[in-house]
Design a protein around this nucleic acid. Structure first.
Length: 749
DNA sequence: GACCTGCTGCGGTGTG
C-alpha cells in the first residue's frame, strides 16, 4: 500500500486524474498497474464527449475501465435522479457487477441499486423515492418501469449522465437488441440532454456496426477503444469418430449392443478430462444430456466419484448455480457439459481445456468458448474438437463422401488463426418489435398520434427500414376487428383497444421473446428443470435429465408439474427446434479451400487425417474444383460454397421456379430434378434475376417472432425483403457462376 | 439439424 501501483508516465497521468477515493481504492486492491484498455478509456471518458465502444477479450478489465472514470465524474453530483444506467442481458451478471461495484461506490458515497425481477422490492422502492447514483437493470425491467410508472421513470431516468451497455455483442443481433435500442431512444426522449453511451463488448466482427448500434445518429462520433489481442498459445487437436451406417439415434442413450461415435467420444473425454476443470460444449440440450449420462456411467463403472455435470437453459437455476459455484471454487475437479449457457460473462474462473463435440458452426461462439481457457499468463489455451462422421455404404450420397464435419472443423481452425469473427447480420424481428413498442409507448404516454409514434419508434436506427406506409398498414391491422389492439379517438389520438389493454397488462408483455409452455420436473422438494410440453408423459415413463435417470410417478396437468423418482434406465427428452444455427459465407468458402488443398495439419488424429483424405479424394473424383452440380439418385446437389443466408435465397428462387429443395450448409439440394434442368434454371436466374419482391411470395414461414401473428402479412413480406436484399442482389452473379461450371456425375446418376 | 435471455402488482399469510 506504500508503493505507487503504476509503472509508466502515461498510466500515472490517467491514474492521477481519477477521484482521490478511487485512487486509494486502487492502492488497496494492490493492482500492479492500470491495463492499457483502462488507461485509454479513462482518457476517452475524461477528455472527450463522444460515445465510447470498448472491445476487448474476456477478463480484460472492461468494467473497471468504464466505471473508474465515470464514477470520478459523477461522484459529487447532487442532482436528483440516477446518474448512470447500466444495462445487462443477464440478471446473474447484474449480481456479479453489483458485488464488484458496491464496495467502491460505498466509499464514494454513491448509491447502487440492482433493478431486476429477482431483486429486492424494498430496495427498488427506496431507490424510487430517492433516485441517486447507479442503477443496474435488464431491458425487460426498463420496459416495465416505462409503462407501469411513467412519471417515476422520468424522475429516475430523466437526467442520466451515462448509459453503459454490457455484453453489447449480445444485443447486435436479434429482437432483444432492437428492443433495447428502442428503449434507449425512449429514455433519451425523457431528458433534455442525451446521456453519453458506453458499450462494453467481446471481440466483434464489425466495429462499425457496433458503433452504429450505440449511436445511430452519427456512428462516426463513437470513439473505439480496442484492446490489443494478447492471445495465449493455443494447443489444439481435431479427433474424428464414426457412427455405424445403420445407427438410428446417434444422440440417444448408450446401447452396448450398438455403439455409436458418442460412446467413444465419451471414453476419450473421461480419460482425458478427469482430474481437472474443463468445459465441454455439446451443441444441443439433448446431446448435453447424452454426453453427461455417458460420463456418469463411466464414473460409476470405474468406482470413482462423478465429476461431469450437465449445464443448459432447461435445468433449474439451483442446479446450474451449484455447478457454477463448484467450477469457480475449484476445490473439486469439475467438467461442465454445456450448450451456449457458459459462453456469456458469468464468473466461473479459468478452466484447463475446452472440448467441442461436433464441428463448430459459429466463429464468434468458438472464440468466446476458447476465451474461457488459458486466461492466466503463460498457460496455453487447449481446444479439442470431436468431429462426427458416418460409416459409408457403397451407394452413399456424394455430399456425405466429402466428410464435411471434419472439413468444417479444419476450416474453423484456419479462421481461428486468421482471427475471423462473423459480423452481425440483418434480422427478421423489426415488425414484432415495432408492434410491441407501439403498444408500450401508447401506454407510457396515455395515447399518441400516428406521426409521433412513427418518429419515436422508426425515426432513426434499425427500425427505420419500416416505411411510413408500412407503419400505417401495421396500425390499421392492429386496430382491425380481428385484433382490437388499438382504437382511434375522433380527434385522431390512438389509444389501446380491448385486446391491447389485456396484452399490455400481462406479465408476459415485457420481454420481446416468447417461451414455450413446459413441464417442470420435481424430485421431492427440488426443482430439476423443465422439458417442452410436447414430450409425451405419463406415470411410469422414464426420462434422462440433469445427468441422471428418473421415473415419472405423478403428473399434475393443471400446474404442469411432473413428480419424479430416481431410476436406472432412461430415455432423453426431446427439446425440438425448427431452426438451425446459420453458417457464414466465409466458413463455407474456407471449407472448399480445405478440400482443394493438400496439407495435412499436424493437429489431426489418425482417423481425422484419414477422413480428410477421403473427403479430398471425393472432391477430386467428383471434379468439384470446376463443377457445382452433383446428381445424387433423382436429386441434384447445387454446391454454392456460400453461407446459410445466400443458400436460403437461392432455395426460395428454386421454389419460385416450381422446384422443391432443401438447404445444405454449403449449398442447396433440388429434389427430383435432373442436373440439366437445374442448370437451365440457373441460366435463367443469371439472365433475368427475379425481383426479390416476387420470390418472397414463396416464403411460407414468415411468422417467426413473438407478435408476428398480429402483423399484416404484406408488412412481414416487405420486412423479409429488406432483410434479404443484399443476398438477393448477388443471386444473378452466383447463378451465372454455378450454371457456367455445370454438372458432375454422381455415382448412380 | 440450435441455443439463450426476462417479468408487475396485488392479496394472502406468517413473523417479530
Amino acid at each position: 500500500m506504500t508503493t505507487s501501483p503504476l509503472s509508466d508516465s502515461e498510466s500515472a497521468s490517467s491514474f492521477d486524474r481519477l477521484h482521490a477515493e478511487i485512487r486509494r481504492w486502487i492502492w488497496e486492491q494492490q493492482w500492479a498497474e492500470l491495463r492499457d484498455v483502462q488507461n485509454r478509456t479513462i482518457s476517452a471518458v475524461l477528455d472527450e464527449n463522444a460515445d465510447i465502444l470498448i472491445a476487448a477479450s474476456t477478463a480484460a478489465g472492461k468494467t473497471e475501465a468504464a466505471f473508474l472514470p465515470i464514477l470520478t465524474q459523477v461522484a459529487d453530483r447532487m442532482e436528483r435522479g440516477f446518474s448512470v444506467l447500466y444495462v445487462s442481458p443477464l440478471k446473474a451478471l447484474i449480481n456479479d457487477q453489483f458485488r464488484r461495484l458496491d464496495q467502491l461506490c460505498e466509499r464514494l458515497g454513491v448509491e447502487v441499486v440492482r433493478w431486476h425481477g429477482d431483486a429486492s422490492q424494498a430496495a427498488k422502492q427506496r431507490a424510487r423515492r430517492n433516485p441517486r447514483g447507479l442503477i443496474l437493470i435488464t431491458p425487460e425491467s426498463i420496459e416495465a418501469m416505462l409503462i407501469r410508472r411513467p412519471n417515476d421513470a422520468k424522475a429516475m431516468l430523466g437526467s442520466l449522465s451515462y448509459i453503459v451497455v454490457d455484453e453489447l455483442h449480445a444485443f447486435l443481433n436479434g429482437p432483444r437488441g432492437l428492443h433495447l435500442s428502442s428503449l434507449l431512444r425512449r429514455i433519451d426522449a425523457l431528458s433534455s440532454n442525451r446521456a453519453r453511451r458506453l458499450g462494453l463488448s467481446a471481440t466483434i466482427g464489425d466495429l462499425e456496426r457496433a458503433a452504429a448500434w450505440l449511436n445511430p445518429n452519427d456512428p462516426s462520433l463513437v470513439s473505439i477503444v480496442e484492446a490489443a489481442g494478447d492471445s495465449p498459445e493455443l494447443r489444439l487437436q481435431i479427433r474424428a469418430y464414426t457412427d455405424p451406417a445403420d445407427a438410428d439415434d446417434v444422440d440417444g442413450i448408450e446401447d452396448e449392443a450398438k455403439p455409436v461415435a458418442l460412446d467413444r467420444i465419451a471414453d476419450h473425454l473421461f480419460a482425458t478430462l478427469r482430474g481437472s476443470n474443463n468445459l465441454a460444449f455439446a451443441g444441443s440440450r439433448r446431446r448435453v444430456e447424452a454426453v453427461a449420462d455417458r460420463l456418469r456411467t463411466r464414473s460409476d463403472l470405474a468406482h470413482v466419484p462423478n465429476e461431469f455435470f450437465p449445464h443448459h437453459g432447461s435445468l433449474s437455476k439451483e442446479l446450474r448455480e451449484e455447478l457454477e459455484l463448484r467450477l469457480k471454487q475449484g476445490e473439486l475437479p469439475t467438467t461442465a457439459v454445456a450448450t451456449t449457457t457458459l459462453e456469456l460473462g458469468i464468473d466461473i474462473g479459468s478452466v484447463t481445456s475446452i472440448a467441442q463435440v461436433g464441428a463448430p458452426r459459429s466463429m464468434s461462439s468458438l472464440r468466446q468458448r476458447l476465451g474461457r481457457s488459458g486466461r492466466r499468463s503463460g498457460v496455453p489455451a487447449i481446444l479439442r474438437i470431436y468431429a462426427r462422421e458416418q460409416l459409408l455404404s457403397k451407394d452413399a450420397d456424394p455430399i456425405d463422401r466429402l466428410r464435411l464435419d471434419v472439413v468444417r472443423s479444419v476450416a474453423a481452425v484456419r479462421l481461428l488463426v486468421e482471427r475471423f469473427v462473423e459480423a452481425p447480420c440483418a434480422d427478421a424481428a423489426v415488425a414484432t418489435v415495432v408492434l410491441h413498442q407501439t403498444l408500450s409507448l401508447i401506454t407510457q404516454l396515455g395515447g399518441s398520434r400516428a406521426e409521433a409514434l412513427y418518429d419515436a419508434i422508426c425515426g432513426i436506427g434499425p427500425m427505420s427500414v419500416m416505411t411510413k406506409r408500412d407503419y400505417a398498414e401495421l396500425l390499421r391491422g392492429m386496430a382491425s376487428p380481428e385484433h382490437r389492439l388499438l382504437e382511434q379517438a375522433p380527434d385522431g389520438t390512438i389509444m389501446l383497444g380491448e385486446t391491447g389493454e389485456r396484452l399490455v397488462a400481462s406479465r408476459d408483455f415485457y420481454a420481446i421473446f416468447s417461451t414455450d409452455q413446459e413441464w417442470r420436473l420435481v424430485f421431492g422438494a427440488r426443482s430439476l428443470g423443465t422439458i417442452p410440453i410436447s414430450n409425451a408423459v405419463g406415470i411410469g415413463v422414464i426420462v434422462t435429465f440433469a445427468g441422471q435417470r428418473w421415473r415419472i410417478v405423478d403428473v399434475d396437468d393443471r400446474s404442469k408439474v411432473l413428480e419424479v423418482q430416481r431410476h436406472r434406465a432412461g430415455r432423453i427428452p426431446s427439446f425440438e427446434s425448427l431452426f438451425i444455427e446459420p453458417v457464414h459465407d466465409r466458413l463455407s468458402a474456407t471449407m472448399r479451400t480445405v478440400l482443394a488443398s493438400h496439407d495435412l495439419p499436424p493437429y489431426l488424429d489418425k482417423d481425422a487425417t484419414a477422413l480428410l483424405g477421403e473427403g479430398r479424394g471425393a472432391y477430386a473424383e467428383l471434379k468439384l474444383a470446376s463443377k457445382s452440380l452433383i446428381a445424387s439418385g433423382r436429386d441434384t446437389h447445387v454446391l454454392t460454397w456460400r453461407g446459410t443466408e445466400m443458400n436460403s435465397v437461392l432455395g426460395v428462387a428454386f421454389l419460385a421456379a416450381g422446384l422443391d429443395c432443401s438447404i445444405l450448409d454449403v449449398g442447396v439440394t433440388v429434389v427430383d430434378t435432373h442436373p440439366e434442368i437445374v442448370c437451365e434454371i440457373l441460366r435463367q436466374l443469371a439472365a433475368k434475376p427475379p425481383d426479390i419482391s416476387d420470390i418472397v411470395e414463396f416464403v411460407e414461414n414468415l411468422q417467426t417472432e413473438k407478435f408476428d401473428e398480429m402483423v399484416p402479412e404484406p408488412v412481414l413480406r416487405r420486412m423479409w425483403v429488406e432483410g434479404h436484399r443484399r443476398a438477393a442482389d448477388g443471386l444473378a452473379e452466383l447463378a451465372a457462376g454455378l450454371a457456367g461450371s455445370g454438372a458432375a456425375r454422381g455415382p448412380q446418376s
